[in-house]
Every structure is written in structure tokens, then in C-alpha cells.
Design a protein around this nucleic acid. Sequence first.
DNA 1: CCGCAATGGAACACGACTGTTCCGAATTGG
DNA 2: CCAATTCGGAACAGTCGTGTTCCATTGCGG
Lengths: 184, 184
Amino acid sequence: MTTTPTGSRARTRQAILDAAIEVMARNPAATLGDVALAADVGRTTLHRYFPERVDLLTALRAEAAARLDLARARARMGDDTGADAIRRLCQEYFDLGDVLLLLFREQVTLEDTPGGCDDEFEAMIRRGHADGSIDPELPAGWVQSLMWSQLYAGWSYLAEHHASRHDTLRLVLRCVAGAVRPQR
Amino acid sequence: MTTTPTGSRARTRQAILDAAIEVMARNPAATLGDVALAADVGRTTLHRYFPERVDLLTALRAEAAARLDLARARARMGDDTGADAIRRLCQEYFDLGDVLLLLFREQVTLEDTPGGCDDEFEAMIRRGHADGSIDPELPAGWVQSLMWSQLYAGWSYLAEHHASRHDTLRLVLRCVAGAVRPQR
DNA sequence: CCGCAATGGAACACGACTGTTCCGAATTGG
DNA sequence: CCAATTCGGAACAGTCGTGTTCCATTGCGG
């Protein structure tokens, strides 16, 4: 009753969310007016869908989490060696683009990610420790920090230099692999 | 005439800057009132030293740049192999603490660092390429992004987990070294 | 064609931060 | 002890983002 599944409401709402992701990723202090402008809707309409700023941010987090989950599912973290799995995960995450920057610039900490992530991630790292593809000296939490920071480095490198998306992804994967590999 | 070199003015000014670094590092949207409170001075006094917000931010950048230069000098980027030098640089930068977070959270991009840095940094990387301690496939700009992101990872790891500063530094150095080392 | 839902624009009140002024109190130093 | 400097608090106006209301317009479906 509350929703018109295929109505124009859903489309407008999504347009606002997409614009918000793009704008907020580039400028965390963006105004609601900025978002409305980018979404090509009136500020009044924006308030109609998200009465308060918090509501928009909440929906934004939910949207980001959903896309994050999708990427995580595609990565099949349970397959192959730990190093192979984390490589796939980085690749999928890298493709998230603006969502990635959003998760950084906003204070959307990793704790906000669905609880399942940490367990699955930790299992992947443990498997890597066991199969010799990840240095046992590196705790799972550290590898997670490492991966996120490398992804951020990739996108900031992309923004500052005029590197291609493809080459940058190669650099990210190359360096994450090198960082987690056992020393000798 | 305008300055009393060793007077209390210098001390107050420094107290404000120190407090600003700490506060702004943790919350980029901090109010001038927040900074004044942390510095244990009245907001009026703060305005007396930094008439407008921009003035404070400018001084903040200058202070950060100065500390950055000090750390860079201590690292002796011209000595030993490229990998050794970048290891020392990471170590010195890591010790900057809040200044590091400030450089991230604010939009103080790497371009703002004194021009000498890039040249010296690039020379260091090139030396590493030549002496075989750094993978020639990695451009200097990328290694710089890599290093900064790893430092950020270290401090965020430190904040989220209850790791010791010493262990975290070890992880950072370990992973930067692994990331830049030639693949085999 | 008519009506209802959706939209956009204008105007408004409200609160937060900023920058300024003024004045009394505290500290410093001669 | 006196005087100059430094400081802090209070009050004020100005600006900006927010949230709300009202109304006219558009567009889609029955």
C-alpha cells in the first residue's frame, strides 16, 4: 500500500539517490540544493522523498551497502586461494567507483557493513594463511584496512593523474597482492 | 614592531594551531568555537590571531607543511637503496600523527607540498628502479599514492582496533615494502 | 476530457556559524 | 604600584543551510 513498485516515484527516488552518491562522493559537505540540482529535481521534491537530511544519508548508506553486497557476492570470496579471492574482491570493489569514495569521505565506517562481511572476510584471510598465499603475520582486520586504503589510493590516483581506469586497477591489484604475499 | 618574538603571543598562537590540528584532524567540520574550546582560549582571542576562518586554515596548512618538511629531512631520502629510503620516509611520516589525518581529511592535496618534494621523491623512486629494490612497473606518482594510503590505513587501523602504535607501524612498513618490491 | 498525482518555485521561520564591537578582568613588566 | 598588553564574555548583525507551507503547472490514467 505504501509503495507503487513500478511508478514514477521509484524512478525519481532512484535518480535522487544516484545524484546524491555522485555529489556527496566528490564533496561531503554538499548542500541539499546541490544534490537536488544534480538530480535535476526541485529541492521541494527532494524533501518530499527524504523529509530530513538524515533520511537521505540513511538511504544513501543502505544503497551503498546494497551495492557493496552485490560486489561481494560476485567476488565469490570462498573460492580458490585466499590471495586469489582477495584479488577478485578488490576488482569488484574497484568497479563500485563513486560508492567507494562515498564510503571513505563520509564517516561510513567499515563497522556499518553487514555483519556477514567480517566473518566471510576473516574466513577468506584465514584460508590464505593456511594455504600459504597470505602472510600469517597479517591480521584479517589489517588486510581489510589495507585493501580499502589501496582502493582509495587507486581512485585518488585516477583523479589526480590522467591514468586509465584499467591501468590503475592493475596497479592496485599488483600492490595488494605484493603486500599480502609472505615475505619469502 | 608587529611581533613580540618571544612574547606570550607566540605561545598563544601555537596553542591555537596545535589544538586546531588535533580537532580538525578528528572532525573536518569542526567549528571555530570547537577549536577555541580545545585551545582553551576564548573565541574572541582566536579571531584576534586569525581574523577569518581562511586565515586559520592557511596557517594550518603552513604548519603541516613545515612539519612535513622536517620529517622529510630526517628521512634522508637520498641515502641507501630506494626501498630503504621509502621505508625511512614512511616511518617519519607515520610519526606525524594528527597532521597526517589532517592532510587527508582536509582537501590538502599532495600538490600543496613544497615543490621540492616531488622531485626528490621521484629521484628516490628512480634510484629504486635502478638498484632493483623497487618494481620498475610502478610509477613514482603511484608509489606516492600508495604510501599515503598505507599511512592512512595505519592510523585508521589504530583508531578502530586496539593495536599498539609500534605494531601498526611494523604492519605499514611491512606492507609498503612488499607492495613495491619487484614481483620475483 | 477531467481529475488526481507529481512536481517546481517562491516565500518564510528557524537555527547554527561567523565576524565584529565593546567593555571589564587578569596578567605582565617596568 | 601603575600602566600597557592580553584576554574572555556578552551582545549583535549578517549569512547560509534547513525544513515548511502554499500555490501554480505539468503529466499521466481513467
